[in-house]
């Protein structure tokens, strides 16, 4: 029975699943899973450079990864970050309706985001070169380039297991995980 996003039930169930998976799974975590996102959240929350750079930032940022069925991403994936004045209030995997309505949505295909996560692609350069697409108020983002850069730099500090680099058995496990999350949480 899927939970409805925005309800207390959804939030409680999401937190329980995250905690359980953190306990059960070993690092590096699968890219884009709740436990991976929780680790990212903690890194951002503890980063002094981000806090300083983002002290005037107001608004949500969404990492939007386009679907790639062969690696288990049957549909687009949205990672929602609630950010306010240098604080990272929370990060969640969210349904498409919520994700696409974020204040700043950065969209790219899996390979691009993987390059960012592997610190091979500077996200600001990626946006300027059109490899990542930005939706949101440009003057706001121009004033917050340092914060945006630091935020996405930090994703490179999350130890990550990428689904295109694993065996067929492991990939099947990832697909199953994603499938269950989609089914339960509508993400």
């Amino acid at each position: 029975m899927p939970y409805t996003y925005g309800t207390d039930e959804w939030e409680q169930a999401y937190q329980q699943v995250t905690a359980q998976r953190q306990a059960d799974e070993s690092k590096p975590y699968w890219m884009g899973t709740p436990e991976w996102l929780m680790l990212y959240e903690k890194i951002v929350q503890g980063d002094a450079a981000y806090k300083e750079a983002a002290k005037t930032w107001e608004g949500s940022v969404v990492i939007h990864i386009l679907a790639k069925p062969e690696i288990g991403l049957d549909e687009d994936l949205y990672m929602y970050m609630d950010l306010w004045h240098g604080a990272c209030n929370f990060m969640r995997l969210v349904p498409a309706e919520k994700g696409s309505a974020g204040d700043f949505v950065i969209t790219g295909d899996y390979e691009r985001w993987k390059s960012v996560m592997a610190a091979e692609l500077d996200p600001v350069k990626g946006m300027m070169q059109g490899k990542l697409k930005l939706k949101g108020d440009l003057p706001t983002i121009v004033r917050a380039v340092r914060a945006a850069q630091r935020l996405v730099e930090l994703v490179g500090e999350v130890p990550t297991k990428f689904p295109d680099e694993v065996s067929a058995d492991e990939l099947a496990e990832f697909k199953s995980t994603v499938g269950a999350l989609r089914s339960d949480f509508g993400i």
Partner: peptide, 22 residues
């Protein structure tokens, strides 16, 4: 569709001055 061109329009050629000073 280009981000830089999109910024240069409304903000002029000094659009990036602040971030570039950093």
């Amino acid at each position: 569709d280009n981000l830089l061109c999109s910024a240069l329009g409304p903000m002029g050629t000094s659009a990036n001055l602040e971030s570039k000073m950093y």
